[in-house]
Design a protein around this nucleic acid. Structure first.
Lengths: 189, 189
DNA sequence: CCCATCGGCTAATGACTAGTAGCCGATGAC
DNA sequence: GTCATCGGCTACTAGTCATTAGCCGATGGG
């Protein structure tokens, strides 16, 4: 891989493990075998490394969601696919997803506004999926907002503890979580 | 309230909003109307403020869990009560719970080991509750570990977005989440 | 009244950090 | 061969932060 890619990768790993604030340019440099100041030949600022992670993560997540539900009309299948995309993304890109949710505080404007807007949009898409099931009478929930948050939060959790070399394969994980989501809204399959 | 209590409260609010690393002693001082260095007349170190939050939070959570399930033998009722205690704690003490999960990285030894042990124990208690329902044949889950994590993660999510002045009352929230948990393990009530 | 303690304060210390300046060897185009 | 560019490096700047030192006014017990 080229050096810039290597740097982004090292930054992602360090931001996940130590947090953005506690990661120094020296740490990132050491992870790729150079000194801190040398990083500035490849990157304009530490903040840029975070921005790239946060923005592409939210855009990818939103794109994955849209691809998953596009053309699907059955509410049950829509929620199943949305949850599958959500959980799969959080398992497969767990570092990005972890940093994406944990380090919002460290994001400077105007990027913060941008990322929050993407996040709000993603949540709205998910709520719409749940709402469509409620409208069709196949989901039973008191609050669409609450049920949506609950399902979304399951994905966040996955990003915290999932390990690719753990006892659960990605497919098994996704399958079980999709079932959790459907059960959660009252679909007994 | 006495000044020490006021300081702990301000620190909790700031750690939640800005994170431990990004909160300065000056910030905490300003929040209680004194200068940063003056805090040292009440507190030995910044780290101590974090330790107090983390340790008491995990101990309280564990105590709440034990009180909730003690003497209850029916697996469904045990999980319902465990989830109720879990969600209620995360709603009622959302700042503590938020900091408790977000700032583990900033905790220095030996407190880190202590808190991680408490957390592991809490997770084990929860898994035992789910396991008892599986053993009794009333819960249907592929993986006890996965289902337990999923339920625990719901609580963490609550600490992120719950607002006491929001559209959901604490009781309504707890009620719906308890139902989510039961549905998640396959109890259709 | 005296004086010790309490709990503020300002100033200083020491460590650390993002980012800049400017040097230099290697590489490759011409 | 020369020279510009690339991508390292060290040294430095400027700022921040936790914590300490030491001062001082108020308070209250004797």
């Amino acid at each position: 891989m080229d050096r810039s890619g290597h740097i982004r990768e090292a930054a992602l790993e360090l931001f996940t493990r130590k947090g953005f604030e506690s990661t120094t340019m020296g740490d990132i440099g050491a992870a790729v075998g150079i000194r801190g100041p040398s990083l500035y030949k490849h990157v304009a600022a530490k903040q840029d490394l975070l921005v790239a992670i946060m923005v592409t993560t939210m855009e990818d997540l939103l794109a994955a969601h849209r691809a998953a539900v596009s053309g699907v009309t059955d509410p049950v299948e829509r929620l199943r696919r949305a949850t599958e995309a959500h959980v799969r993304y959080h398992a497969r890109h767990r570092l990005e997803a972890f940093v994406g949710t944990r380090e919002i505080r460290s994001l400077a404007e105007p990027h913060l506004t941008r990322v929050l807007a993407l996040r709000t949009e993603y949540e709205a898409c998910f709520r719409a999926v749940v709402q469509s099931g409620v409208d069709a009478g196949v989901f039973q929930v008191d609050s669409v907002r609450l049920a949506s948050y609950a399902i979304l939060d399951l994905g966040m959790g996955v990003a915290v503890w999932y390990r690719a070399d753990g006892e659960q394969s990605e497919d098994a994980l996704v399958w079980q979580y999709s079932r959790f989501a459907l059960r959660l809204v009252g679909v007994t399959a």
